[in-house]
């Protein structure tokens, strides 16, 4: 006989005290942890734990495009491969890519693309592999969080990070950060990807039924949740370097001014030119700039007075 796992009998999603099945209040996010630089072979990588979700993201590139015919001569392309491991869910998931994975790969790409400056990478591809090794509701949101972290870790210039968190409707109440059970049993599910500082949306999907008032509250809750997660993302990106610095340059110790150490030509990574014009109007982040730079930033423009000597 197979393994018997007793199923918790869940009477209601939210009890009379406003407490949810996992003990949270309606406007609380699940536990969140993240780290970067976790995969040696990748240019940049991230690991995210969000609730029971455990997700890896690995960035390779910018590098040559394969197959060649997909290359664009005016800009780089972003390719995202979202896959769930066969053991990430209770019932073994077949390893063949399914339509949901294709959809999420596309959704993640449309969310992250506007954050990048793809015009500085003609004929190149940035490939991101997302592997969900444990799933617990809201994987696409947690994946967006992980992909943003991995891209930043890879040294790819970005306008800002993207932070994912879902919000939904359970028992007529707006609930922040649905867990797996609430996701399946609730009345609506809105995965969101926020650009927190600008209060803009990068990823948005909707499944279910809500009134306009409920939707406004949902956005309020999800921004609140995203703000907490964004802070954790920033800490993770800095921590990789600050941890080392704290050991060798303990705070308070006197340090010789070390600019003298830097030498040779400063091979800055490919980066966007100073955008003298104001950015595109709201909702159109990252469109192609009309005034394309004639050359990549290998030859610096004159306004770069900030050269290291």
């Amino acid at each position: 006989m197979g393994l018997l796992i007793p199923e918790k009998k869940i009477e209601q999603l939210i009890d009379e005290n406003g407490i949810r099945t996992d003990g949270r209040k309606v406007d609380e996010i699940r536990n969140f942890k993240c780290a970067v630089g976790v995969l040696e072979n990748a240019e940049g990588s991230a690991y995210v734990e969000h609730g029971g979700n455990k997700i890896y993201a690995a960035v390779y590139g910018p590098r040559e495009v394969h197959p060649r015919h997909m290359a664009r001569s005016d800009r780089g392309i972003l390719k995202i491969y979202y896959r769930m491991s066969t053991f990430s869910v209770f019932e073994r998931k077949s390893p063949a890519p399914n339509r949901r994975e294709q959809e999420i790969s596309m959704v993640l790409r449309t969310a992250l693309e506007p954050m990048l400056f793809l015009e500085i990478y003609p004929n190149s591809a940035i490939e991101v592999f997302v592997e969900v090794v444990a799933a617990d509701g809201g994987t696409r949101c947690a994946s967006a969080t992980a992909v943003a972290l991995a891209l930043a870790d890879a040294g790819i210039p970005m306008r800002d990070l993207v932070t994912g968190v879902a919000v939904g409707l359970c028992n007529e109440q707006i609930c922040l950060d649905l867990n797996d059970f609430e996701d399946k049993a609730g009345d609506a599910d809105i995965p969101c990807g926020w650009v927190v500082q600008q209060k803009k949306i990068a990823l948005l999907q909707f499944d279910g039924k809500m009134t306009p008032d409920q939707i406004m509250q949902a956005f309020e809750y999800s921004l609140k949740g995203a703000t907490e997660i964004y802070a954790a993302q920033q800490v993770a990106l800095r921590e990789k370097y600050e941890a080392i610095r704290d050991i060798v340059n303990p705070p308070g110790s006197v340090q010789r001014d070390d600019d003298e150490d830097e030498g040779g030509d400063q091979p800055y990574s490919q980066q966007p030119r100073d955008e003298q014009r104001t950015p595109a109007p709201e909702g159109q982040e990252g469109g192609q700039p009309e005034d394309q730079p004639g050359e990549p930033d290998g030859s610096q423009p004159d306004d770069q007075g900030g050269d290291l000597e």
Partner: peptide
């Protein structure tokens, strides 16, 4: 636009990236 070190040179503010592919 990077994870990097702030570098202030008179009126210019630079950020030196800590990772990246060679250009």
């Amino acid at each position: 636009v990077f994870v990097g070190l702030v570098q202030i040179r008179s009126r210019f503010i630079n950020v030196v990236p800590l990772n990246g592919v060679y250009l």
